[in-house]
Write a protein that binds this DNA or RNA. Structure first.
Length: 536
DNA sequence: CTAGGGTTAG
């Protein structure tokens, strides 16, 4: 029966009549390749064919058809994309099929452990809690973790500020005889310092040295930056000077970190001097560094210093470009304001504030999750929790993924957005909401839609501070329309805004979602929660 | 795969 249907579908899609090859394997390849291609996946989903894959996998199992290498590869890719699309039911089947295949004594070789892929994808998508549980279950059912498993888990925990989990897993890793490398130590150091655990960080560094793991430029950059952020500026400068004297372990980023700190402290002269030194040593002064300087100049009321940069930074034509950009924008900003003072018409807000909750997942979602049919016992299940996850197909997604803000690269297409963000910050810190709005408006007119969450967050934050809640809501809508992903700062602003509007009920509901959805909490929210605990 | 700017925070 199944054979017949499968063969027909396979033939229909591929246009090739299955001959000697197993129809399962063939259809699997065709379907999954199709699901990976953007245009085809839509039609496959629309026709509901993608739903056939789990059944298909079960048929294969029943009939004892083994996976070939191509299929495994396709399955692996498909697993990754289905977790990303929150299609956990599908991911689950693929996951277990792969587990089984890799258990089959090497007949099918997959280059990595499927468990690692599953755990990694859960982490990337922001389901840190889920990933930890799945991992525990895999361990119990005898799937040996390897070096990558530990690296993936520890880095995931570090990025989500779960340092206790990170340290626990790190300990276990060493207990099991795996040797951590420089990069793993770097991740741990960075996480520890970002979590403001300076003492632990120092111990970690000592341990690293003791064990003979060699520190790199990155290690020292993380350390110096961490010292600056944890009120140990003196120690940071000392370390920097020592390294510089030795002429080792300093690079352009090191200088950039120190320049930023000098700007924070208002030591502009020192900062500019360091930039000069940077150049003599042959390190290029990039946009990040210039951005730090510009903001520093503005904060100290020394805006005239921006011309000085021209003299000091000879590298390329970055500074002239920045200044030209600035001049052009300031000219545009002088045009008459086209909208009225509170900018409400600029961002028409749609819907009630209650539907903020729909972004976070509605109550019905939860109800539906509760009444999900009893979990079928999967014969291959090494991770019942993964099965449970898959059964909750309408389970709300985590609100945001683990990925940090986009890295700044020397790509010219991000220049405008980077500059805009820098000047937004300058105008907003001046309290010049009107100028900031104008800048925002100009970019909207230009049809620039690839703004970063930073842009929307700063606008929203200012509106919320001024009490323009409708306008803030408009920005939030616009952010959604432009498919800009909300991040932790966005949710902080939403929580703050709802609170200010007297909707503490909604605010705490949003916070609840943040904590229960397996997402991660920002260090700030963690502090707030601790604060709440203490005051109660 | 790990580091630096601009947003959130009594």
């Amino acid at each position: 029966m199944r054979h017949g249907r499968v063969t027909t579908v396979s033939a229909a899609i591929s246009g090739v009549s299955p001959a000697t090859k197993s129809p399962y394997t063939q259809l699997c390849n065709v379907l999954l390749v199709a699901s990976l291609s953007k245009t085809l996946s839509q039609s496959v989903c629309r026709t509901g064919l993608i739903g056939e894959v789990p059944d298909l996998l079960i048929s294969m199992k029943e009939d004892g058809v083994n996976l070939d290498q191509t299929t495994s590869k396709v399955l692996l890719d498909s697993l990754i994309s289905s977790v990303k699309r929150n299609e956990l039911r599908l991911a689950l089947s693929i996951f277990f099929k792969l587990l089984e295949a890799s258990d089959n004594n090497g007949e099918v070789s997959v280059s990595y452990l499927p468990g690692n892929v599953a755990v990694n994808e859960l982490l990337v998508v922001g389901r840190v809690k889920d990933a930890l549980i799945v991992w525990d279950e895999l361990k119990v059912s005898g799937h040996e973790p390897d070096n990558s498993t530990y690296r993936i888990l520890i880095q995931g925990c570090c990025k989500s500020y779960r340092m206790d989990d990170a340290m626990r897993i790190f300990g276990e890793m060493q207990y099991n005889g795996f040797v951590p490398d420089t990069i793993l130590y770097n991740s741990l150091l960075d996480g520890t310092l970002k979590a403001r655990k300076i003492v632990e960080a120092c111990q970690m560094f000592e341990k690293m040295v003791q064990e003979g793991v060699r520190a790199s430029c990155w290690t020292y950059n993380i350390l110096i930056d961490g010292l600056f952020r944890n009120e140990r500026a003196e120690a940071g400068f000392t370390l920097f000077c020592d390294l510089k004297k030795k002429g080792q372990f300093v690079d352009a980023i090191t200088f950039s970190i120190v320049v930023l700190q000098l700007c924070r402290e208002g030591k502009l002269e020192g900062a500019v001097k360091l930039v000069e030194e940077m150049e003599t040593r042959g390190f290029s002064v990039d946009l990040v560094t210039i951005s730090s300087l510009l903001i520093g100049f503005h904060k100290q009321g020394r805006w005239d210093w921006k011309e000085k940069l021209m003299k000091h930074v000879r590298e390329g034509n970055l500074v002239p470009n920045v200044l030209r950009w600035n001049a052009g924008v300031e000219a545009s900003l002088k045009r008459p304001q086209s909208k009225d003072k509170d900018y409400t018409p600029m961002f028409p807000s749609k819907g009630s504030f209650l539907d903020i909750m729909s972004m976070v997942g509605s109550e019905e979602d939860e109800a539906r999750t509760e009444e999900v049919t009893p979990i079928e016992v999967d014969p291959w299940s090494s991770s019942p929790y993964m099965g449970q996850l898959a059964d909750q197909s309408n389970r709300p997604k985590p609100l945001f993924a683990l990925a940090r803000g986009q890295r700044v690269e020397a790509k010219p297409e991000s220049f405008d957005v980077d500059m805009m963000n820098t000047f937004l910050s300058i105008y907003l810190s001046k309290g010049d909401l009107s100028l900031a709005c104008k800048l925002f408006e100009i970019f909207n007119e230009m049809g620039v839609t690839d703004l970063t969450s930073y842009t929307y967050n700063s606008m929203m934050s200012s509106f919320v501070k001024k009490g323009y809640f409708q306008t803030a809501r408009g920005v939030l809508d616009q952010m959604g329309e432009n498919f800009c992903e909300a991040d932790i700062a966005t949710y902080n602003i939403i929580i703050q805004g709802l609170g200010k509007m007297g909707r503490a009920d909604l605010a705490s509901a949003v916070l609840d979602r943040l904590t229960t959805q397996g997402g991660y909490l920002d260090i700030i929210i963690r502090c707030e929660l601790q604060h709440d605990d203490r005051s109660e």
